[in-house]
Design a protein around this nucleic acid. Structure first.
Length: 738
DNA sequence: CGGCAATACTG
DNA sequence: CAGTAT
DNA sequence: GCCG
C-alpha cells in the first residue's frame, strides 16, 4: 500500500498542479474541481486528511458508478439498445450494389488493424466529451489560490511556497503579452505532476520563458526557487554540468531530481509525451556521474531496482549472467504488476466489494505510484526509417512554434481526424493495406509541428504520397473530404462496422451477414448462424466496446495475481498491452504469466489446472473464448472477466510464457501492433525473425520472404537485448505507440 | 510491380 | 483450410 | 494507400 506520506505527497502535487492550472486560466469562475475541494478539506483537518479525502472520493465514486451503471444486462435489451441508433439508419440496402474493388484483399485483412482503428476512432469522441469538463476545471480566485498554495507547501518544506509564486507568474504572464498559452485539455497534460527547476532558473530569456510557460500549459509546475519535490532539473543554454552547478547556492547540483538538458523538454512537447530521460541526447554534458540518479527517478524509486539497473546499464550489451537476466525480469515484474503489493490488491478488492460497481477516476488512482512518473499516453515517432526528417532535434524551433488554432493541439488535428475516418472507412471495406497506409500517414502527421497546407508540403513527409497529399490539401483548403462524405453516407459502412465490432467477427463474416440481409444485432442474434464466441460477443457488445480505465485493469490483475500466488508463490505476472504502455485506459487486459526457470508446460499446467479453475469458480472469470484444451500444447487463454459486483465483462488475455521467452513475449504482448510489425519487419530485413518466442538469426527466406529455415535462437529472455541485437535503441513501453 | 509481421486457436 | 485473434 |  502506498504509505501515508506518499499519499499526502500525491495530494499535494495535485493541489499545486491545479493551482497552477487556475493561474493559466483567465476566466474567473468559482467552480472548483474535486481534487481542490479534497485538498482544501485535507488542509483544514490535517489529522484526518486521508479519511476525509478517501471518504469524499468514495462518495464520488459511488455516485458515478451508479450513474454509469444504467447499462441493461439482459441480452435482448442490450441488443435493442445498441440497435436503436442503427435502426434509424436502416435503409433498404442495395445489398449487392457494386462496392469498391478491393475484394481480392478482403480475405487477408488483418483484424488487428481494424481493431486498432476502431479504438483510434473513438478517441476524438472522447476528447470532445471531455472538452466541456475541461472548461470547468478549477478556477478559484487568485487570493485563495495563493493562500492554499502556501499552506499546502508549508508542511513538507518551508521553502515550498516559492513553488507557486503565483503573483509572480501571473505578472510575467502579462509580460508575455499576446503569447497566451491556455492550458491544454487535461488528457493532454502529459507533464502533469512534474515540478521543474530550470538552470538558469529565470525567465529572462525569451526562449526559456516560452518553454516554461509551455511546460505549465502542459501541466507541469515551475519551481522558481529551489525546494523539495522538484522532479526535474532542466539545464538550458547548453550549460555543462560544471557551469550548471554554479547556479546553485551550494555550487553543486542536488541529487534526487532528474537532470536533463532542455532538449528533453522540447522533445516532450513535440511528442506530447513524457520522454525517457536517460537517453544520451538529454544528458547534460559531463553528467555521467549523475546517471544513476536519473535512473533512480525514472524507475519507481525502489532500492533493489536501482541495483539492477546499475548492473544492467553499466554495459548496455553485457554477457548474460544469470543475475543480469534475473535482474531484468525482476525489474519488469516490479515495474508492473509486482508493484502492486498485496495491500493494494486488498484495497482493490475491498473497493470493489464496498462500492458494488466501479467507475474510478483514473487520474486519481493512477497517480498512486509516484507523481513524477505520470504515464504518457500519446503518440510517438516511428522506430526506424522515418527518422530521416520529421524527427531530429530541429525541435530547437519548438519554442517558436506558433500556437495557431489555439487548440493547443497538433496543428494538423483536423487533417488527422479526417484521415483516421478514412482509414476507418477503408478498414470497413476490408482493405487492410490502404488502412495501414492511412494510419501510418497519420502517425507521420502527428509528429509534424507545422500545419501541412499544400500538397507540396505534404509530400515532404515520409509516409505521405501523391494521393494522400492531394487529400490533405483538400482537407485543409475546403475543410472536408468529398471521398469521406461519400463514404460516410454509405449506410452499409455503419452496419459493417457495427458487425465487425462484435468479438470474433471480421470483415468476411460481417459482409456475408449483410449480404444475407441482416441489419441489426438483433437480427443476428435471432437469425444468423453464430458460433459461441460471436454469440457472447453480441451479448456483451457494449462491454467489450468500452474502454477499461487503467485503475480497473489493475484491479483485475490484482485478482488474477492473488489466485496465481495462492497456487504458486513463485509465479509472477506482468500486465502488458496498453497498460504497460502507460495508457489511461485499455481495450482489454493482457497479462503475461511466468515463473523463474519454468518452462511452458509448467506454467500452462499451473494455470489450466489450478488458477483458471479457481478464478472461474470464484466467478471472476466469466467465459473462455479461445483457449487451449490440449493439455500438452498451447500458450494462451482468451476470455472475459468481471470484477465482483460489476456486470461489465472485460476482455482478458493471459499468455503463458516460458522463462526463456519472457523478453520476446513482453515485446509481443506490449505492442502496440504497429510497433511490433515494424520491429519484425526490421528483423526480417536483417535476415532475422522476431516472434513471441524470441529473436532468431540465419533465417532463410524464399519467394516473398517465405521462411525456409527457422533460424537459430539469438535471444528470447531479455527484452533489452533483443532491441540491441536488432540495432534498435531500446524504447520503454510508454514509447511504443507509433 | 510486389511487399506491407508473424504467429495461435477454431471449426 | 479460412477466419479471427494477438 | 506508400515505398523501393
Amino acid at each position: 500500500m502506498v504509505s501515508t506520506q506518499e499519499k499526502i505527497e500525491k495530494d499535494k502535487f495535485f493541489r499545486d498542479l491545479y493551482l497552477l492550472d487556475s493561474l493559466d486560466d483567465d476566466s474567473p469562475e468559482s467552480e472548483v474541481e474535486t481534487p481542490i475541494r479534497l485538498a482544501a478539506k485535507a488542509k483544514r483537518q490535517p489529522d484526518q486528511t486521508l479519511d476525509a479525502v478517501q471518504h469524499e472520493r468514495a462518495k464520488q465514486i459511488t455516485t458515478r458508478g451508479k450513474v454509469g451503471e444504467r447499462r441493461p444486462e439482459t441480452v435482448p435489451s442490450t441488443v435493442s439498445a445498441v440497435d436503436h441508433t442503427l435502426k434509424k439508419a436502416k435503409v433498404p440496402l442495395p445489398v449487392d450494389a457494386p462496392k469498391k474493388k478491393a475484394l481480392p484483399e478482403k480475405r487477408k485483412r488483418a483484424p488487428s488493424t481494424d481493431r486498432e482503428l476502431r479504438r483510434r476512432d473513438s478517441e476524438p469522441a472522447l476528447t470532445a466529451k471531455s472538452a466541456p469538463s475541461r472548461a470547468r476545471r478549477l478556477k478559484t480566485s487568485p487570493s485563495i489560490v495563493v493562500d492554499s498554495a502556501v499552506q499546502t507547501t508549508k508542511r513538507s518544506s518551508e521553502k515550498r511556497k516559492h513553488v507557486t509564486d503565483l503573483s509572480n507568474i501571473k505578472q510575467r504572464k502579462h509580460q508575455l503579452g499576446s503569447k497566451k498559452l491556455p492550458p491544454v485539455p487535461i488528457g493532454e497534460q502529459m507533464l502533469k505532476g512534474l515540478l521543474f527547476y530550470f538552470v538558469p532558473n529565470n525567465d529572462i530569456c525569451q526562449a526559456r520563458r516560452f518553454r516554461i510557460h509551455k511546460a505549465i500549459q502542459y501541466g507541469a509546475a515551475w519551481a522558481n526557487e529551489w525546494c523539495n519535490g522538484i522532479t526535474h532539473i532542466i539545464v538550458c543554454d547548453n550549460l555543462d554540468v560544471h557551469e550548471a552547478s554554479k547556479e546553485f547556492a551550494c555550487k553543486e547540483i542536488p541529487r534526487g531530481p532528474t537532470l536533463v538538458n532542455v532538449n528533453w523538454l522540447i522533445e516532450c512537447f513535440s511528442r506530447r509525451a513524457v520522454c525517457d530521460t536517460h537517453w544520451n541526447r538529454f544528458q547534460v554534458s559531463g553528467s555521467e556521474a549523475l546517471k544513476e540518479t536519473n535512473k533512480e527517478q525514472q524507475q519507481h524509486q525502489s532500492k533493489p531496482l536501482i541495483e539492477h539497473e546499475d548492473s544492467i546499464d553499466k554495459h548496455a550489451v553485457d554477457e548474460e549472467t544469470p543475475e543480469g537476466l534475473e535482474a531484468n525480469a525482476a525489474e519488469c515484474a516490479l515495474l508492473d504488476a509486482e508493484t502492486e503489493s498485496e495491500d493494494e490488491l486488498d484495497n482493490a478488492i475491498r473497493d470493489v466489494r464496498s462500492l458494488g460497481s466501479l467507475s474510478i477516476d483514473p487520474s486519481f488512482d493512477d497517480g498512486a505510484k509516484s507523481p513524477g512518473d505520470e504515464p504518457p499516453v500519446d503518440q510517438e515517432p516511428a522506430p526506424f526509417h522515418g527518422d530521416g526528417k520529421a524527427r531530429k532535434e530541429n525541435a530547437g524551433f519548438m519554442c517558436m512554434e506558433k500556437h495557431d488554432g489555439g487548440k493547443g493541439d497538433n496543428p494538423n488535428e483536423q487533417t488527422i481526424v479526417k484521415l483516421l475516418k478514412m482509414a476507418d472507412y477503408y478498414s470497413a471495406t476490408g482493405d487492410q493495406w490502404r488502412t495501414r497506409a492511412y494510419r501510418q500517414a497519420v502517425a507521420a502527421l502527428r509528429k509534424e509541428r507545422r500545419l501541412i497546407r499544400t500538397k507540396q508540403e505534404a509530400l515532404t513527409v515520409r509516409g505521405i504520397g501523391d494521393r494522400l497529399a492531394e487529400k490533405i490539401q483538400e482537407i485543409v483548403s475546403i475543410g472536408k473530404l468529398q471521398r469521406l462524405d461519400n463514404a460516410e453516407a454509405d449506410p452499409r459502412d455503419k452496419i459493417l462496422r457495427l458487425f465487425m465490432g462484435i468479438y470474433h467477427v471480421g470483415f468476411p463474416t460481417a459482409s456475408r451477414w449483410i449480404a444475407e440481409g441482416h441489419r441489426t444485432l438483433e437480427d443476428l442474434y435471432q437469425k444468423a448462424d453464430l458460433n459461441r464466441n460471436q454469440r457472447i460477443g453480441i451479448e456483451h457488445y457494449e462491454d467489450f466496446q468500452q474502454r477499461i480505465p487503467r485503475a480497473e485493469v489493475a484491479q483485475h490483475a490484482a485478482i488474477v495475481k492473488k489466485a496465481l500466488r495462492a497456487a504458486d508463490t513463485e509465479a509472477q505476472m506482468i500486465i502488458g498491452g496498453s497498460y504497460r504502455r502507460g495508457s489511461a485506459d485499455c481495450g482489454d487486459i493482457d497479462i503475461l504469466i511466468f515463473k523463474k526457470d519454468a518452462g511452458l508446460d509448467q506454467i500452462r499446467a499451473l494455470m489450466m489446472e489450478t488458477v483458471i479453475p479457481e478464478l472461474t469458480a470464484q466467478g471472476f472469470l466469466k467465459v473462455a473464448l479461445a483457449t487451449t484444451h490440449h493439455q500438452d500444447s498451447g500458450s494462451k487463454w482468451h476470455g472475459a472477466s468481471a470484477l465482483p459486483g460489476s456486470k461489465t465483462w472485460r476482455r482478458l488475455d493471459l499468455l503463458f510464457v516460458p522463462w526463456a521467452e519472457l523478453g520476446a513475449a513482453l515485446i509481443y504482448f506490449t505492442g502496440n501492433d504497429y510497433f511490433n510489425r515494424s520491429l519484425r519487419l526490421h528483423a526480417s530485413r536483417k535476415q532475422m525473425r522476431l516472434n513471441q518466442h524470441g529473436l532468431y538469426a540465419d533465417v532463410m527466406r524464399g519467394q516473398g520472404r517465405e521462411r525456409i529455415t527457422q533460424g537459430r535462437l539469438l535471444e528470447g529472455h531479455d527484452e533489452k537485448r533483443i532491441f540491441e541485437i536488432l540495432g534498435v535503441t531500446y524504447r520503454p513501453p510508454e514509447h511504443r505507440n507509433p
